[in-house]
Design a protein around this nucleic acid. Structure first.
Lengths: 333, 333
DNA sequence: ATAAATTATGTCAGCGCTGTCATAAATCGA
DNA sequence: TCGATTTATGACAGCGCTGACATAATTTAT
């Protein structure tokens, strides 16, 4: 932006009104006579005026920015949440200011303070794992805060997501009802991905209730990926070949598992059941649609924004929105 | 952010120095005595001072923001570019302000003007297709501009990417050298995705040079996806079964094609060759690794930021960085 | 017709910071 | 030793906008 870009004052002069009137026209605020509005708009177009957001943010101690903290951009899950956020934000004039935490609460804390420096209207972050300092900043700021993906704990303000533990639990219930008994588990690094751990715990809980247990489990030491799923299933089966179903930490891993079976001549759905989590498109495009759980990621982002926008002040009551999950029966388990 | 958050003045008072000195300490600018610096830092920590970015941006007519315009977040390609941008940005203190254009130049134009209102240090956008007004805004602004993904036209300032046309061309050359002759093409909507069209044109160009042609082609009317690839290949083959290789507009589509073959009992690599574009992980995790072209998306984002950061003023010379592409021979063609 | 309410517009200070220019203190060179 | 540099700090205005508080013009009610 140039120093000599037209300002409110320039527009006001050209339209023959005061600056504040132009400001009101631009922000659609307060009563403006139709004729005045027209003249101002004309002047705006003529000069190519674009409001300086920094000045506006400073003067009003508020900005049309929404801080968004995402743990990762490496698989499609969080971009989809972001897409939901974006879709809901687009008609409002708010813009997302993004930070990527790499699943690191300390990084989240640093990013949070630089986001807060912009005086955003709201902050959207992921999960409930924050440093004390982050929590402090968020509650001090008094702006609206949404914590996404999980609803298994008490939010700072709004939580939007699904019960990760419940999803794990219902995975086991579903598979037990389909007469699977010899369960294996293939996961990835859950120091990073806390929600994968919650699903795992839910899974084990339901198995225990049914008097069952995991016959074998293997965790890939790194982030989830198709390749990791493929290799980790191979490792699991070489150690324990007589499983009748394997639950994966997510669809990326499960699709990899499917590919392993394809290569190894294992008939998926007959010799071995496979179950994922997320309901990604890729899983449903497989020759056998993947049995999995739909996690409604787009909706989580969209609904979070909608709820945040309902009021600029944080209400007394904390809000928890359960976006639910649906078991996709599929054909692999 | 609260109206009563500590300001520079509060820090200055506590440290017993002037505001400008605190400002200099915070920004690491100008000479500061070690003792002064220490006292200021102490005061900053004690008060939990966080600089108000809006004020800084207003006063200096510049902000530590980088405007990023992406066409889509629906598949993994642009999130990966964004990840590259993010990775390079993280140590610099700059933050990305994101807009999603849905491949619509007019939407891009609107987003551009709201990004520019923040007086960003630079703008990163995609491709060369902009409205005249966008082009105008970008050149008037004098800030650094990077146009990503394609290098087949003259950039406004910096272009970082690969020759899409060249990638299409070399796809054909490669397949011809492997004795494929009966080419089919499966694409998606290229009104949106202009680069897919460039690759297609490159492909046809190389075929023509070799005295060959596309025996059949089919374009899915919508964005690329695994399912679209699967269905569109089915349609193509039902119309023209005797192809020996099918080139897809990208890996998502090609993976879908692979799944179709799996279901239809077509032996990939023997009965029919498949070739993609992008070099996504998923393609390489297939039982037969997908034959495709690696497009170095992460590097495109990272290098764009690095080049943008080299100077805050736009140099006389336009810069084109070719991040290249590599043919991944794979096993499907 | 006149007070009361409503609508339309303006004045002014100040948001929190940084650029510019000035000044003071320390260091240097011959 | 004394001007010339270099280093360290400060005073001050002003970036472009908006909130609070008038005030003027118009409509409505009585």
């Amino acid at each position: 932006m140039l120093r000599n870009a037209p300002t409110l004052a320039d527009v006001a002069r050209l339209a023959g009104v005061s600056e504040i009137t132009v400001s009101r026209v631009v922000r659609n605020k307060g009563p403006i006579a139709a004729g005045t509005r027209a003249r101002v708009h004309e002047a705006i177009v003529k000069l190519g005026y674009v409001p300086n957001r920094a000045a506006g943010a400073l003067a009003s101690a508020a900005s049309p920015l929404i801080g968004v903290l995402l743990p990762s951009l490496s698989n499609i899950v969080f971009p989809e949440v972001l897409r939901g956020i974006h879709t809901a934000l687009a008609p409002t004039g708010y813009q997302p200011l993004i930070g990527v935490t790499d699943y690191d609460p300390l990084k989240e804390q640093h990013l949070l303070s630089s986001l807060l420096a912009w005086q955003p209207a709201a902050i959207i972050t992921t999960g409930f794992e924050h440093t004390d300092a982050s929590r402090q900043m968020l509650s001090n700021s008094r702006i609206r805060v949404a914590e996404l993906m999980d609803i298994d704990a008490e939010p700072i303000d709004i939580a939007v997501g699904l019960s990760q533990r419940g999803a794990g639990f219902d995975t086991a219930r579903h598979l037990i009802s389909r007469n699977y008994r010899r369960f294996g588990y293939v996961g990835h690094d859950w120091n990073a991905d806390h929600r994968a751990r919650l699903r795992y715990e839910g899974l084990r809980g339901a198995l225990a209730e049914a008097g069952l247990e995991l016959k074998a489990e293997e965790r890939f030491d790194g982030p989830s990926s198709t390749m990791a799923g493929r290799e980790t299933l191979a490792a699991l089966l070489s150690q324990k070949p007589d499983l009748d179903v394997v639950v994966f930490s997510n669809d990326d891993m499960a699709v990899g598992g499917f590919f392993h079976c394809l290569g190894a001549g294992i008939r998926v759905g007959q010799d071995l059941g496979l179950f994922g989590f997320n309901g990604l498109d890729i899983g449903q495009a497989l020759p056998l649609p993947l049995s999995t759980i739909r996690s409604n990621r787009f909706a989580i982002g969209r609904i979070a924004v909608e709820k945040l926008m309902e009021s600029s002040r944080r209400p007394e009551e904390k809000l928890v929105v359960d976006t639910g999950y649906q078991i996709i029966a599929g054909a692999t388990a």
